[in-house]
Write a protein that binds this DNA or RNA. Structure first.
Length: 880
DNA sequence: CGTCTACTCT
DNA sequence: CATGAGAGTAGACGT
């Protein structure tokens, strides 16, 4: 057995002086605690003792003080910065459930000495962590001291051999030595005029004080006089400097049993202290299972048990579900009225759980809480349950509360909001090649896992609800984000019909053109074949072989992006071919061959995934494949849109897009009368802007002027600066600044608004959309000016982009519901930020065109009108 | 398997 | 000092 005893006072002094000042964001000093905790982490990770105890001195006087008034006299008072941390450390140790050893009348040393002796008798190996050399006297066959050397970065292992080498003495000799030489720090006098060197010599010769004075006549001269004069002081010093080995400790080593120091409470406190380093380390060690509350549950295995569960479900309004879907089926843990139930995939299948659920009369009104409800909706839909009451998705709620985070999975959320470390599916089942099926794992383990995670979802909901209320986002969550789940699930399930043969033709066309271009490029380069797709190889050909001027470099070599190539176009005919090659290569790899791999052969449809928890501004994103970036700008790219067709010959695509939604939002947010006026009169906004800043009548605005105004309008939304605006327009930075100044002169409230947003972002640390969607921007208070500027641009753009996202999300819900209410067959199948596409039976076209315009335009009431343009056609290409 | 570069959209 | 917001994907390349 191994035990570790720590001299808490000594260690915290050491860490306090060894680590530079630090504090958390609330100004609480933390350096000493930080160092202390680091050592505890090291103990847990490396030493893994069976017992651990930390001893502290009490303020009350000890037997030494009673014997000697000046004991430890002359010591400075504990610095305030340390005193504050001392108290916090003790609280932390209590939360870590580490025994704090204190005893009135004794010092930490004495407690440690006594415990070390008790341990030694039991045959334990004991290690004492301290920065006080006094403890060396305790060293023995079973006792070592880990001495904090060089601050705290190293622990020197001090054993008998080490002491012999360092002093030429045994550990016990050190007591006698100290009696002679004293200890300045404890104000132990020793004998005046005897220091370390003489002391060591004397002890080597006589071993003990008694022996020394028995042979005092062997000494002579001044030294003898000093020894005789100091006899009383020496014995007193020995008493003071001898660590007691028999303090009255009535405890048991069992109380010192070491266990994981990271539990919900201690982790919470580490978070408050903002020890991110330490928290990330323990996160990775992943040894922690902190759900201490054992969750009892009922394992549903028989028809009878399932019938009972269904009866419970029929009598409730709320249910929390943790689910896991794989090829073999769906595993479920459920919480109903604080009782837990578990069904494995085999039971779900065999007992026909979902079929029975379908016939439950309250199935459509059950308020369901889960992590990732959109996928659960898919599962329900597959089972024929078409109406689902999505009450609370912990995944979306977690995203909403802090949409700039990287991940919102249950593990991350449980850690952040509950200070719990749980297992997630990835850890439970592995990923990639190592993925295993649930049925391959231990049944009991599996059941336990599902129930625990279900309990976590339930607990998480309580915390997230409170947070949503406190941040004013509950209404956004309830009226937009939750109802939207079903709309997105529906879009995912419906998919977008593809004209496969046309896509094949298109892709073949791209590929044959690419072949020709490849040959031409090799000829023009006068080279052997090289990989044109490799920026590295292309750079070598352009800038080394053909010696074209280097325009720009990347971190790793020559830049060959489109800006660079366009500047080189007149230097060599190869450049134009490369631009064409790039364009075609992108079109084929991503949209030709690329899309082909996503076409489901059975239905000839593409099924994209829509993600609600990715974009920090509140937008949706689309992936696998991304249908929100299908080419449109160039004619060749736009051809791709011909393959996106209605679901059958009796259908037509109806498309509706918001006109200038972001600038309208800006007009609303800023309240600028001039900008509002432009929209109220439904003028062409870029022409109007040009008229304002160039001081010409609307009719006299030239194409160039309109183009420049358009660039300014868009630039504004993104916080663009004069430098790049000038670059874009091919004018000087000064001229560009002049345009921006004139813009703000004509739209003064836009300028005010932007100033206010930045100010607010700096003060609050976040910005909000019209519906209260919040985004934290920590960059605003960075010390790095570049980051602050980037933060300002986010602060400017997010309320605009975010409000536009709110509006179209509301519109999606309205359109979806209206189509249902009017019992139309038309279906919403795609959203592209400001655009909705509806697959519509031809006989519903007029009705749908009218309805979609109404619902989109009526989604929000701003201080400017919102207008929607509607188009219909036989392919996405025709919707312009 | 992760990072980099380049390119597509609103 | 860098210089336009928000996304996703393919291919190359290095580990």
């Amino acid at each position: 057995m191994k035990s570790i005893l720590i001299d808490g006072n000594s260690l915290i002094y050491r860490t306090f002086y060894a680590i530079r000042e630090m504090s958390n964001s609330k100004g609480v000093p933390t350096n000493a605690i930080y160092g202390f905790v680091n050592i505890l982490v090291k103990i847990q990770e490396e030493y893994q003792p069976d017992y651990l105890g930390i001893a502290f001195d009490l303020k009350a006087p000890t037997f030494r003080h009673l014997a000697y008034d000046d004991y430890k006299g002359g010591r400075h008072k504990m610095p305030e910065l340390l005193e504050e941390q001392f108290a916090i450390l003790k609280q932390l140790l209590i939360k870590m459930d580490i025994p704090i050893l204190e005893l009135a009348g004794f010092e930490a040393d004495d407690i440690i000495g006594t415990l070390a002796m008790i341990g030694a008798e039991k045959g334990y190996q004991t290690e004492i962590i301290t920065g006080d050399r006094d403890a060396f006297q305790l060293v023995g066959p079973n006792v070592k001291v880990l001495y904090t050397k060089k601050g705290i970065s190293q622990l020197e292992a001090v054993d008998e051999a080490w002491i012999q080498q360092e002093y030429g003495l045994t550990p016990k000799d050190l007591i006698e030595l100290k009696a002679l030489m004293g200890d300045k720090s404890d104000n132990i006098p020793g004998i005046a005029g005897i220091g370390e060197k003489t002391g060591i010599k004397l002890i080597q010769k006589y071993q003990t004080l008694d022996n020394l004075y028995a042979h005092i006549d062997d000494e002579k001269g001044k030294q003898k006089e000093k020894l005789i004069a100091g006899k009383e002081a020496a014995y007193k010093s020995r008493m003071l400097g001898t660590i007691k080995l028999d303090v009255p400790w009535d405890g048991d080593f069992k109380e010192l049993s070491f266990h994981n120091i990271f539990n919900a409470e201690s982790i919470e406190m580490l978070k408050e202290l903002e020890f991110k380093n330490i928290l990330s380390r323990i996160d990775q060690t992943d040894t922690v299972e902190t759900i201490e509350k054992a969750v009892g549950f009922q394992w549903i295995k028989t028809d009878q048990e399932l019938a009972e569960l269904l009866a419970v479900l029929a009598a409730t309004e709320e249910v929390t579900i943790y689910y896991h879907q794989e090829e073999t089926g769906v595993y479920l843990a459920m919480e109903i009225e604080n009782r837990y139930y578990y069904l494995n995939a085999q039971v779900v299948e065999k007992l026909k759980f979902f079929e029975k659920l379908l016939s439950l009369k309250n199935v459509t009104t059950l308020e369901i809480t889960s992590q990732d409800l959109k996928n659960l909706i898919h599962i329900f839909h597959q089972a024929g349950i078409t109406e689902v009451n999505e009450a609370f998705d912990t995944y979306v709620a977690t995203y909403l509360l802090s949409p700039g985070d990287q991940r919102y999975d249950l593990k991350t959320a449980a850690y952040k909001y509950l200070s719990r470390t749980i297992l997630d599916d990835e850890e439970m089942f592995g990923k990639g090649k190592k993925r295993v099926k649930a049925s391959e794992l231990d049944e009991q383990l599996l059941a336990d896992y599902f129930v625990k995670n279900c309990e976590t979802v339930k607990s998480l909901k309580t915390v997230l609800e409170k947070e949503l209320d406190e941040t004013g986002m509950m209404s956004l969550f309830k009226t937009i984000e939750m109802p939207l789940l079903e709309v997105m699930a529906s879009m995912e399930e419906l998919g977008f019909k593809i004209d496969r043969s046309q896509l094949e033709v298109l892709s073949g066309d791209f590929e044959s053109k690419l072949k020709g271009l490849t040959r031409e490029i090799y000829e023009l380069a006068e080279t052997d074949e090289f990989n044109i797709n490799s920026p590295k190889q292309l750079g070598e050909v352009l800038f080394e072989k053909l010696k074209l001027p280097v325009v720009k470099k990347t971190k790793t070599g020559y830049s060959t992006n489109i800006d660079v190539l366009e500047q080189l176009i007149h230097f060599h005919p190869i450049v134009e071919k490369i631009i064409d090659y790039r364009t075609l290569s992108k079109l084929d790899s991503t949209y030709g061959r690329g899309l082909m791999t996503f076409v489901e052969p059975k239905t000839n449809k593409i099924y994209s995934t829509f993600n609600q928890t990715v974009a920090a501004t509140g937008r949706l994103s689309s992936s696998a494949p991304n249908l929100q970036n299908i080419p449109v700008k160039t004619e060749m790219g736009r051809e791709i849109r011909r393959v996106f067709v209605p679901s059958d010959a009796d259908h037509i695509l109806v498309d509706a897009d918001y006109s200038q939604i972001e600038l309208r939002v800006l007009a609303h947010l800023s309240g600028d009368e001039n900008l509002i006026d432009a929209f109220k009169k439904e003028q062409d906004i870029h022409t109007r802007t040009a008229s304002e800043i160039f001081g010409v009548p609307l009719e006299a605005v030239s194409r160039t002027q309109r183009g420049q105004a358009k660039a300014i309008n868009f630039g504004l939304i993104y916080g663009k600066q004069a430098f790049s605006l000038g670059k874009e327009l091919g004018i000087s930075r000064n001229e560009a600044q002049n345009y921006i100044d004139r813009y703000f002169a004509r739209y003064p409230k836009v300028q005010d608004y932007m100033g206010n947003v930045k100010k607010q972002a700096k003060e609050d640390g976040y910005v909000t959309s019209i519906w209260g969607r919040r985004r934290y921007i920590p960059e605003m208070n960075s010390r790095n000016g570049i980051l602050v500027q980037a933060g300002e641009r986010m602060a400017l753009n997010t309320p605009i982009q975010g409000s536009a996202a709110d509006i179209i999300k509301l519109a999606m819900i309205r359109v979806y519901n209206r189509l249902n209410v009017e019992q139309l067959e038309a279906e919403l199948i795609l959203q592209v930020h400001d655009e909705l596409i509806i697959d519509t039976p031809k006989n519903e076209q007029e009705q749908v065109e009218r309805l979609i315009k109404e619902e989109m335009e009526g989604a929000a009431q701003l201080s400017v009108p919102i207008t929607v343009d509607v188009n219909s056609g036989a392919s996405w290409y025709e919707l312009k």
